[in-house]
Simulated assay, not measured.
Amino acid sequence: MSSVPAPQTSGSEEDAQLIVDERKRKRMLSNRESARRSRMRKQQHLDDLLSQVAQLKEENGQILMQVNLFTEQYVRLESENTVLRTQVMELTDRLRSLNSVLHLVEELSGMAMDIPEIPDPILKPWQLPCPAQPIIGIGECVPVLKVQFIV
């Protein structure tokens, strides 16, 4: 059996190798710890994003409910406005008919009457229907048809 003599190393070379090995070990531990912290940050970021997604979905649902409510209100109000416009048109036509009867009575009787113009609220919505009277409350301003006979 032949024995190979072990390479002879001096104590300082062994110490240097131990120092290098210790540095490698510390670097590996540091790298592992850094990787662990990085994974933890990544997981925290993912958790934050998932939380934000849930919050945004909830806000989106609330906004969608508001949009639906506003849409329903809009449709209801638009329908009411259509009914009111139709009623205004019908009442305006009736008033025109009454005014034409008054003009006919004026012509036949020979008596002069003060028949006011009929404002068209559809074409001129900015004009109040009864500007001579102060507006005290809602529904208290009622237009009055004045007919004066001049003899």
Score class of each variant (00 low, 15 high):
105 V>P: 01
126 W>D: 15
84 L>H: 09
25 R>A: 15
92 T>Q: 15
72 E>P: 00
71 T>N: 02
28 M>R: 15
96 R>N: 15
133 Q>A: 05
128 L>W: 02
147 V>H: 02
62 Q>W: 02
74 Y>K: 08
63 I>T: 13
2 S>L: 09
37 R>D: 15
80 E>Q: 01
109 S>L: 00
137 G>K: 02
121 P>D: 00
49 L>T: 11
57 K>L: 08
131 P>C: 00
72 E>M: 02
11 G>Q: 07
144 V>F: 00
124 K>W: 13
136 I>E: 06
103 H>E: 08
74 Y>N: 03
53 V>I: 14
64 L>Y: 05
38 S>Q: 15
44 Q>C: 04
85 R>H: 08
26 K>H: 12
148 Q>P: 01
45 H>I: 04
128 L>Q: 11
145 L>G: 01
150 I>F: 11
1 M>V: 07
114 D>R: 07
113 M>G: 06
58 E>S: 13
82 T>Y: 05
68 N>Y: 07
71 T>C: 03
113 M>T: 02
100 S>A: 12
32 R>K: 12
100 S>W: 05
110 G>S: 02
58 E>W: 06
123 L>A: 15
64 L>P: 00
75 V>F: 01
136 I>W: 03
119 P>H: 05
121 P>L: 01
145 L>C: 00
90 E>W: 07
130 C>T: 09
56 L>Q: 13
22 E>C: 06
124 K>N: 15
29 L>Y: 10
4 V>R: 13
77 L>A: 03
7 P>K: 06
44 Q>M: 12
50 L>I: 11
6 A>H: 09
64 L>S: 11
47 D>W: 00
14 E>Y: 01
45 H>L: 13
84 L>E: 08
85 R>A: 13
19 I>K: 10
108 L>C: 03
129 P>D: 07
74 Y>H: 11
41 R>I: 04
122 I>T: 10
18 L>N: 06
64 L>H: 05
21 D>A: 07
88 V>R: 00
9 T>S: 11
148 Q>D: 11
132 A>P: 07
55 Q>E: 14
91 L>K: 11
85 R>M: 11
60 N>I: 08
39 R>V: 14
90 E>C: 07
106 E>W: 01
6 A>T: 12
143 P>L: 00
48 D>H: 10
49 L>W: 11
75 V>Y: 00
93 D>P: 08
128 L>V: 10
135 I>E: 08
144 V>R: 00
149 F>R: 07
85 R>N: 13
111 M>Q: 07
90 E>F: 05
108 L>F: 05
131 P>K: 01
140 E>G: 07
50 L>Y: 09
28 M>I: 15
119 P>F: 01
83 V>M: 05
26 K>R: 14
34 S>M: 15
148 Q>K: 09
3 S>M: 09
3 S>D: 13
136 I>Y: 04
76 R>Q: 10
37 R>E: 14
87 Q>D: 05
140 E>Y: 08
139 G>D: 07
53 V>K: 14
24 K>M: 13
30 S>K: 10
49 L>A: 13
89 M>G: 12
75 V>T: 08
90 E>S: 13
12 S>N: 02
146 K>M: 04
120 D>Y: 06
32 R>F: 12
116 P>A: 07
40 M>W: 09
7 P>F: 09
68 N>W: 03
58 E>D: 14
42 K>Y: 01
21 D>L: 12
42 K>E: 12
68 N>K: 09
56 L>K: 11
12 S>G: 06
85 R>L: 04
147 V>F: 03
10 S>H: 05
68 N>S: 12
17 Q>F: 12
77 L>S: 04
12 S>Q: 03
